[in-house]
Amino acid sequence: MSERIKHWPGKRLSSKELTGGKVTTTSTDPKVKYAWACGEAISRFLEELKNGKLIGRKCNSCNQILFPPRMFCEDCFTPTNEWVYVKDTGTIETYSISYLDTDARRIKDPIYVGVLSVDGASEKQGIMHYFGEVTPKTIKIGMKVKAVWKPKKDREGAITDIKYWRPLRRGEK
């Protein structure tokens, strides 16, 4: 390090010192709620999930089918033109096997999660979702998968109306 720098500032504090009253502290616990507008495209997308269907949007300028749907094409910067149903099958683009939950707490049974591109949409048009009926040994990038839907009465117009995606069975389309 630079000969001229003799002192590096900073006063280290342990978790115990911070939470155990060794130093004075102040805390806040903000309670704010949000209602995020889903917009034209995602509102329809969520509505279609209740019917067990996946819908995308076609851009006539570049001929891409965008999924999830968007009302504008970010490449052409023009409005998209028509609704297109896509399939509830797809391909695993990538995945992870997570031993952490959303707050970084350890969990015993891992979550299989990844990005999949859906059949019927353009290349690299996909979503993040869970995978099921797989093991660390069997899950693979490039694997064909199919959506496992919640029973119709339990669907609420949410991305979780699909429980997970399972490997496509032999002969299945």
Binding site: W36, C38, I42, L46, P68, S98, L100, D101, T102, D103, A104, V113, I127, M128, H129, Y130, A158, I159, T160
Partner: peptide, 9 residues
């Protein structure tokens, strides 16, 4: 809407 309901880390 699309990611957070899956409780991602």
């Amino acid at each position: 809407i699309l990611d957070r309901p899956l409780k991602p880390n």
